[in-house]
Design a protein around this nucleic acid. Sequence first.
DNA 1: CGTCTCCTTGACGTTAACGTAAGATGCCGC
DNA 2: GCGGCATCTTACGTTAACGTCAAGGAGACG
Lengths: 159, 159
Amino acid sequence: MPTDLRRPQRTYTIRQLCLEFKCTPRALRFYEDKGLLTPARDGMNRVYSYKDRARLKLILQGKRVGLSLAEIGEILDLYDLDDGGAAQMAKSLRKFKERIVALESQREDIDRAINELKVGCNNLEQKLIATRPDLLPRAADYDQMLRQRLDGVEHVGAK
Amino acid sequence: MPTDLRRPQRTYTIRQLCLEFKCTPRALRFYEDKGLLTPARDGMNRVYSYKDRARLKLILQGKRVGLSLAEIGEILDLYDLDDGGAAQMAKSLRKFKERIVALESQREDIDRAINELKVGCNNLEQKLIATRPDLLPRAADYDQMLRQRLDGVEHVGAK
DNA sequence: CGTCTCCTTGACGTTAACGTAAGATGCCGC
DNA sequence: GCGGCATCTTACGTTAACGTCAAGGAGACG
């Protein structure tokens, strides 16, 4: 019978974790340098425990929502202190709310920029219609652009 | 009678432009290094023409909407070629639309992150309510946070 | 024993848009 | 002649999160 790939006693090589979480050995070693991970050793080789894997999962989650490694480190430190208890949760909650506020502010910036750009596009289109309508991008070109963009995304995602 | 500060024949020192557009001499020299500006000289000193001022204005507008200096440079190069004519407008239009697509994608990322964070906040709050409600941030603390944030913004804006 | 593959450490490179001295020049008024 | 101010050039520093070699060890295979 096959070993359960996730049972708590299990250990992982660096490559196994990298494959599972789509990251590179360099990244894991970097996190270790920063004190976010402290895997055991077998001779020279790193041996990641189930707990290390859980920490890595938290690290990557934090990254996805835009937390810096330093901020993630603060949370993980508390994780060590009280083993995922109340203090860590309270700190995470604060960090999360701060991040939400920051992200909402960023989104406002983006919306402003989009509006400014749309105004600019309209101006340019008006002028081009008046002077050189032949230079206006055509619907076909736009479709082409979108298709290229989607192909790119699929390629990255598939590979 | 005072000289019109913006009449086309006017020239500007580096400091005057910096004051007007709230940037630093270092930034203007940097743009010059990158080929975005090419002011005349009076001896060693830079002398910015009305056209230079217009270019700077475009540079800063481009920055506000998130264009890189390299991209802004591409547009400005065309600006030189046909003096603000059709080719430049067509290129700007393309760049603007590309930027809009990129910004909308960024906004989706942000929205996803915000949702993920809100889910996380809810989970954490539930657990804290059950175990350590004393650690929950209170409404008063939240007001305090907002006030500090607003003060910061006003301070920056006013100064 | 040679080769292969995975692992290690160490250390420099990358990117963008400037910041920050350090040291020199030049003009103004006194 | 000198202090003070604006300007100049040159050139290294900053930040984040790794990427990219380089050089070397350890175990497995045939």
